[in-house]
């Protein structure tokens, strides 16, 4: 009951924090798509490079987010951005590389070699093959990677409250420091709901972007 009345009384604050939260994740994952998809396509040219890149991306994900924030403070302090929005975005950008690069790489390399041969034999240039055949076929798998990145990083963004990035994590960190279960529970529930909603919305988007000929 206490929690419900807390939510009802602080509705606009919660929505404001949620908006901050979404903004951090959206910018970071958006940038991650712009970098990760081309990287994933580029590394299909060499198995050795692909292994190295995917290895590095895997290592990045194993760094605890709180440690990553800590590592960035001295680096970004040189431009006066040691804490706040920028390091949060950078961290999420880095964490998102693994699912997006890996899924793009897997999707492109899994395109049926017969399709590639047909496309080549018909006289498509490498860019035409990529844009007309390989990417459309890879889209569902790439989008699945984006979904993973978003859901995973909605959690990471909550922790970014500790470096002053804002977002729903603010409720959680305050709930802990003020021993206030109302804020803590509200923050936790809001982050979970946001993750579920994002997952659902991206699944819809994934289905829309899947070429009709590939749907079951």
């Amino acid at each position: 009951m206490e929690i419900l009345s807390f939510i009802a009384n602080n509705w606009s604050v919660i929505l404001g924090l949620a908006a901050e939260h979404i903004w951090i994740v959206a910018v970071a994952v958006g940038l991650a798509i712009l970098t990760g998809v081309p990287i994933g396509i580029a590394i299909t040219q060499s198995k050795r490079v692909a292994d190295a890149v995917l290895y590095v991306a895997s290592i990045i994900v194993t760094i605890p987010s709180i440690a990553l924030f800590g590592l960035m403070i001295p680096l970004l302090s040189t431009i006066g951005q040691g804490i706040g929005w920028l390091p949060a975005v950078i961290a999420i950008l880095l964490y998102s590389q693994l699912p997006i690069v890996r899924n793009t790489y897997t999707a492109i390399t899994n395109v049926d070699p017969a399709l590639r041969e047909a496309a080549k034999g018909m006289g498509m240039t490498p860019l035409q093959r990529l844009l007309q055949v390989e990417i459309p076929i890879a889209v569902p798998v790439i989008m699945a990677g984006v979904r993973t990145a978003v859901v995973m990083n909605i959690g990471v963004a909550a922790i970014a409250a500790y470096i002053g990035a804002g977002g729903l994590g603010v409720l959680i960190s305050r709930g802990i420091s003020q021993t206030d279960p109302r804020q803590l529970v509200t923050g936790a529930i809001a982050v979970s709901l946001l993750a579920m909603a994002a997952d659902w919305a991206l699944l819809k988007l994934q289905k829309r972007l899947t070429p009709a000929g590939l749907k079951r």
């Binding site: 017969a114 399709l115 041969e117 047909a118 496309a119 076929i137 000929g213």
Partner: peptide
């Protein structure tokens, strides 16, 4: 080609 290779998209 034998595998036909029609583009499914």
């Amino acid at each position: 080609i034998q595998q036909i290779g029609l583009f499914p998209n």
